[in-house]
Design a protein around this nucleic acid. Structure first.
Lengths: 142, 142
DNA sequence: TATAAAGCTATATTCACTAGAGGTTTTTAT
DNA sequence: ATAAAAACCTCTAGTGAATATAGCTTTATA
């Protein structure tokens, strides 16, 4: 029987986070001691490890909830789990593209900044210059 | 004099978001009509555009608050703005690296999944397999 | 047996918005 | 001038995924 602290240590999770997962129904309510403290079995550790691994892969708690359900039903098709992972992959790839575009603009901004007065600061200038960005939203009739 | 809706349209911001920015002190309180509606000047539009552009570049509202302050003090050195942008760049680059590692693992996971029963599903197996991940946090004495 | 460490509940906070209820003002059309 | 529609107002609550705090109780160790 494992205490919540041991579970936390073994999975790299904060104690409060484990209680939070229980609260939102992601983990089963464990048994309690006479004094009311939680005591976990190995299966609880496995389940928490599954959740944490999913989080490390960027899955939302909702997606993890689905994956847990699939994992509990070994007779169902694998294709649902696959499709959840596919969606996650697409999202990750989109995020990478956006961040790379952002990286480029930040680099350009910083490269052009020569450490002078803020009056000439390229960083601030880029932020101030809305000549392009405003017209993205409204270029009709004004 | 611009209404809040016009400001929203011109900057691609939701009306509520503009009111939220005012509430947290990022935008100045604008003038009001006799009936109590907000009316903005061009300078308010410029400031909001600055904020939105900063958000597009991934700056936190706190960072933007600092940048706005620097922008208002043209006598200060540019180096502070530069350093905020540098920090942002580092963060973005770190996020890209993490996401790329994640992308690789997801791709491997999906590639090995052949759409069979969930009992053999590689996606679920990877999530279940904590042989590596547990030892990341606790490999001493248990 | 005393004390320290770990646990407990309950509530609030974070970030950056977003949504909704229920009402008022302004604009537009007739 | 008036009716209707569009836009505005405040206030409150919710999102995701935790994290933090206060004040208390239980368990483990010396």
């Amino acid at each position: 029987m494992l205490t919540i602290g041991t579970l936390a240590r073994k999975t790299g999770t904060k104690v409060q986070t484990i209680r939070y997962y229980e609260q939102i129904g992601l983990l089963n309510e464990p048994g309690r001691t006479a004094g009311g403290q939680r005591r976990y079995a190995q299966s609880d550790l496995d389940r928490l490890a599954f959740v944490r691994h999913g989080r490390q892969l960027g899955f939302s708690l909702d997606a993890i909830r689905d994956l847990l359900g699939l994992s509990d039903n070994p007779d169902q098709s694998c294709s649902q789990a696959d499709s959840i992972a596919q969606q996650q992959l697409v999202q990750v790839q989109q995020r990478i593209l956006r961040l790379q575009a952002l990286e480029t603009e930040l680099q350009r901004m910083i490269a052009e900044c020569e450490g002078g007065q803020t009056g000439d600061c390229r960083v601030l200038e880029v932020l101030r210059d809305h000549s392009e960005c405003l017209t993205d939203h409204d270029n009709i009739g004004e």
